[in-house]
Simulated assay, not measured.
Amino acid sequence: MKQGDLVIRKSYGGDVLFKIQEFRSTHAILRGVDYRLLADSPVADLEVASGQELIPYYLSNHPEMNKAMQRLKSQIAEVNREVPNPGAISQGSVPSYFELPGKVLHLDGDPMYLRKSLSLYGELKVPAEGYYVPEAGMAEALYRLLPQTNPDIVVITGHDGILKHRRNDVGNLSSYKNSHNFVNAVKVARQYEKNRDTLTVVAGACQSHFEALLQAGANFASSPARVLIHALDPLCIAAKVAYTSVKETVNIRDVISLTSSGLEGLGGIESRGSHRIGLPKSPYYA
Rank of each mutant, 00 (worst) to 15 (best):
D169N: 14
G171M: 12
G171N: 15
G171E: 12
N172H: 12
N172Q: 11
N172A: 13
L173W: 00
L173T: 01
L173F: 03
L173P: 03
S174Q: 14
S174P: 01
S175D: 06
S175H: 07
S175C: 06
S175W: 03
Y176F: 15
Y176E: 09
K177S: 09
K177R: 14
K177P: 04
N178P: 10
N178F: 08
S179Y: 01
S179I: 02
S179N: 05
S179A: 10
S179W: 00
H180A: 11
H180I: 07
N181W: 02
N181H: 15
N181G: 12
F182P: 06
V183Q: 01
V183Y: 01
V183P: 01
N184M: 08
N184P: 03
N184S: 15
V186M: 04
V186H: 00
V186C: 05
K187E: 06
K187Q: 12
K187F: 05
K187W: 05
K187M: 15
K187S: 10
K187P: 10
K187G: 10
V188I: 01
V188W: 00
A189D: 04
A189N: 02
A189S: 08
A189Y: 00
A189H: 03
R190H: 01
R190K: 05
Q191C: 08
Q191L: 13
Q191S: 11
Y192S: 10
E193D: 06
K194F: 07
K194G: 12
K194I: 07
N195D: 15
R196L: 12
R196W: 08
D197R: 14
D197G: 14
D197E: 15
T198C: 05
T198W: 07
T198A: 12
T198M: 13
L199H: 05
L199A: 04
T200S: 15
T200Q: 11
V201H: 07
V202G: 05
V202R: 01
V202P: 13
V202A: 06
A203Q: 08
A203T: 10
A203K: 08
A203R: 10
A203V: 06
G204A: 11
A205I: 05
C206I: 13
C206S: 10
C206Q: 02
Q207C: 08
Q207I: 09
S208Q: 05
S208G: 07
S208I: 07
H209V: 08
H209S: 07
H209K: 09
H209M: 12
H209I: 07
H209L: 09
F210N: 01
F210C: 03
E211P: 07
E211G: 04
E211H: 11
E211L: 10
E211C: 06
E211Y: 03
A212H: 02
L214T: 04
L214G: 03
L214K: 08
L214H: 04
Q215N: 15
A216Q: 03
A216E: 00
A216C: 06
